[in-house]
């Protein structure tokens, strides 16, 4: 078996036979940082940075930082076997792959989509300028 009785550099109260014991300092510190970052993200959303995309980016960066803190300290990934992180990160990477391809595809065919469908009546004449009918 692996990790245990693991020098962490923090003043743990004891070592457990199995698994790392999180110190009070780490737990409270992580919690405090998370709360602060929550306030930051709410405040940042009210500020206009110019482009809507920039607000989204900032919000996502803060969310990723929060998520990393939760994973590393609350979920003990920093002190655990590497394989657990591999499993988790692989799942996230796969999800990212999924998003990327699906977004690329839907982006490409958006101009073919009629956004307001309900009263759509097709014209009787073929519209030669329709994108899908252009020679390539």
């Amino acid at each position: 078996m692996s990790n245990h009785v693991h020098e962490s550099g923090y003043d743990d109260e004891t070592h457990s036979d199995m698994g790392h014991v999180a110190s009070k300092r780490v737990l409270l510190g992580t919690w405090g940082t998370l709360m602060v970052l929550t306030i930051v993200t709410v405040t940042a959303s009210k500020i206009d940075f110019g482009a809507a995309e920039l607000n989204l980016l900032i919000a996502m960066v803060i969310a990723v930082i929060k998520a990393t803190l939760v994973c590393l300290f609350f979920m003990h990934l920093k002190y655990d076997k590497l394989f657990h992180s591999v499993v988790f990160v692989s799942a996230i990477l796969l999800a990212t792959l999924f998003v990327t391809f699906a977004l690329m595809d839907s982006n490409q065919y958006q101009h073919d989509v009629y956004w307001q469908q309900r009263d759509f009546q097709p014209t009787t004449e073929v519209d030669k300028s329709y994108p899908a009918l252009q020679p390539y």
């Binding site: 206009d48 919000a59 939760v70």
Partner: peptide, 19 residues
């Protein structure tokens, strides 16, 4: 439970904090 929290950490800005 931490995972449930993680998901909410992303849901909150994506749904509520759109500029």
């Amino acid at each position: 439970w931490h995972l449930v929290d993680l998901i909410w950490i992303f849901l909150f800005p994506l749904l509520y904090l759109i500029a």
